[in-house]
């Protein structure tokens, strides 16, 4: 049972990282980046493949994955200059679909739908206990760095851009540059989360980074509340707490996945309908 809790703790931390990164782009920068899981995939695959194929040290792989995801995140800030609201959200969703298609079709490198097995753990963190310590440390550090960013004048400017782009411009804020930095940081953390996931689970496939994970992160963030750092943590941990007991219910195992998704989506809908600011959010979803 303890081993199981440690396993859960690691996964929960990784989801918290993803949600924190997502909250930076959606809650603070005001960009509903539905390609977020695509960024996680970039981090995971880059790290896994450089370590497996090029024999890079695990740490270097994780750094490379995070940096490449950061670049991809910055790239996703580009269309925001011209494309707003719903269109931006669906366009970035397209990034995830294109990423997935690349992972499936570029099978000489990614092994396609078979996935990448045997991804090693970083040296010294082979056991789950050590790995848990590692991700907890990384999550806490990330939380404080992000909290610092959003509570600085930079974060304030970011929120201004989210609330009213034109007024922010009139006040001399370089809207594009602000969003570029926010998306890059968001991508960096998403990539880091992806790389940690890859080295923890030790097997990734295109299915690991798909709509289910996206709506999970989306639900966690909306439930916690936009533009709230503790909200992102509470929301994603809450979903974990709801989802795990399902495994122990007397239902066929192939039903667990769909049932979990249905419950998550029902909760997400209820929040959008009855409490759009989430549990502790400071802003609402707007177009």
């Amino acid at each position: 049972m303890d081993a199981y809790l440690i396993h859960l703790g690691i996964l929960a931390c990784i989801y918290v990282l993803m949600t924190l990164a997502f909250n930076l782009s959606v809650g603070y920068a005001g960009l509903l980046n539905l390609g977020h899981v695509g960024l996680v995939a970039v981090g995971a695959y880059t790290s896994a493949l450089t370590v497996r194929h090029l024999d890079w040290p695990v740490w270097l792989g994780i750094v490379a994955g995070s940096l490449l995801a950061m670049t991809a995140g910055a790239f996703l800030a580009l269309p925001a200059r011209k494309i707003k609201g719903d269109y931006y959200a669906l366009l970035t969703l397209g990034f995830m679909f294109v990423m997935s298609a690349v992972l499936i079709n570029w099978d000489s490198v990614t092994r396609g739908t078979l996935g990448v097995p045997g991804i090693p753990r970083p040296g010294g963190f082979q056991t789950n206990v050590m790995f848990l310590l590692l991700v907890v440390a990384i999550t806490i550090a990330t939380y404080f760095v992000l909290a610092r960013i959003v509570n600085s004048p930079f974060g304030r400017a970011l929120e201004a851009v989210r609330d009213d782009e034109e007024v922010a411009m009139a006040l001399g804020k370089p809207v594009f540059r602000l969003r570029l930095v926010a998306m890059a940081v968001s991508g960096l953390i998403a990539g880091l989360a992806g790389a940690l996931l890859a080295h923890f689970v030790q097997f990734i496939s295109p299915n690991t980074f798909w709509l289910d994970q996206l709506v999970w992160v989306l639900a966690g963030m909306v439930i916690g509340g936009l533009a709230s750092m503790p909200g992102a943590v509470v929301g994603s941990v809450l979903l974990f707490a709801i989802s795990e007991p399902l495994r122990f219910l007397p239902i066929p195992s192939e039903l667990v996945g769909p049932l979990r998704l249905m419950i998550f989506m029902a909760i997400l809908l209820a929040f959008v309908l009855y409490r759009p600011k989430g549990l502790m959010g400071r802003a609402q979803l707007e177009g």
Binding site: I149, P153, F154, R156, E159, A160, D163, K173, A227
Partner: peptide
């Protein structure tokens, strides 16, 4: 037109400071 999720003071500070996009200076 207000930055409607912020306080009066934050709104006004945003007008006052022109260099708050500088990520590292602001950190």
């Amino acid at each position: 037109r207000l930055f409607k999720n912020l306080t009066v003071e934050e709104n006004l500070l945003l007008a006052l400071r022109e260099d708050d996009h500088r990520f590292w200076c602001m950190f």
